[in-house]
């Protein structure tokens, strides 16, 4: 009778094992079969660690269920969960994703003492004056002069960039890296510029045109899915 049940399909790939899980059966049935199949397929204990990628189709695992699945896989010798992928997300996750990925246009001058904070990318149409601050979870694009403080990737995204028509900041921050304006006066350049974190983990300011090469995914909406 175990023959007719086939809620779990296992495929070997170069990245380890991919498990396709049926999304119609009950959670209990699925767990029972998962346990059986993994026990059957268990390689000898001497082998290297194999990562398991679970594809759950249209089934949504609650955080507790997800923890149970991980525990089950971990319980088998030399198996570990590499990823769990589902076709469904909760509404909250979807909203959160939207907030963190949308480009927020703001037409305003950010004046001394003012702070503007957005979750996603910021498109500011206006200046940031000295003493003003803009903060974004993603990138910061300023159609105007940046003379205050800008902090991009404030939740830790080191790929984030800051671009401005006039780049004369008091301070730039990307993720947890910071740099401040030089103490000597630099001449005003009439060129749009961008700031990003380079290979040496430092913020550099360069011509805007370089961005296409440095961050090819910059404008792709699915970049963080």
């Amino acid at each position: 009778m175990s023959k007719q049940r086939s809620y779990v399909t296992i495929k070997g790939t170069k990245d380890g094992l991919t498990l396709h899980l049926d999304d119609m059966c009950s959670y209990e049935e699925l767990m029972t079969e998962l346990d059986e199949k993994l026990t059957l397929n268990a390689a000898d204990a001497e082998g290297p660690l194999v990562s398991v990628h679970l594809k759950t189709g249209n089934r949504y695992f609650t955080p507790t269920q997800e923890e149970e699945v991980r525990a089950l896989v971990r319980g088998k010798k030399n198996l570990v969960v590499g990823s769990i992928e589902s076709n469904v997300v909760t509404k909250e996750e979807a909203y959160e994703w939207k907030r963190k990925n949308e480009i927020v246009p703001v037409a305003k001058i950010i004046r001394s003492g003012q702070v503007l904070h957005v979750e996603g990318d910021l498109l500011l149409i206006g200046d940031v004056n000295p003493g003003g601050t803009v903060i974004a979870g993603g990138n910061i694009f300023i159609l105007g002069a940046l003379r205050g403080i800008a902090h991009a990737g404030c939740y830790g995204n080191k790929e984030a960039v800051i671009a401005a028509s006039v780049m004369k900041p008091m301070q730039l921050r990307i993720s947890d890296v910071m740099n401040r304006a030089p103490d000597y006066k630099t001449e005003e350049r009439n060129e749009m510029e961008c700031a990003y974190i380079d290979d040496t983990n430092q913020i550099v300011v360069d011509r805007l045109q370089l961005l296409t090469h440095l961050r090819p995914n910059l404008t792709r909406i699915e970049r963080r899915l």
């Binding site: 003492g113 000295p130 003493g131």
Partner: peptide, 11 residues
């Protein structure tokens, strides 16, 4: 600088 701060508040 202070004028900028005040303008922000007035706005």
């Amino acid at each position: 600088r202070d004028a900028d701060r005040i303008i922000g508040l007035l706005e």
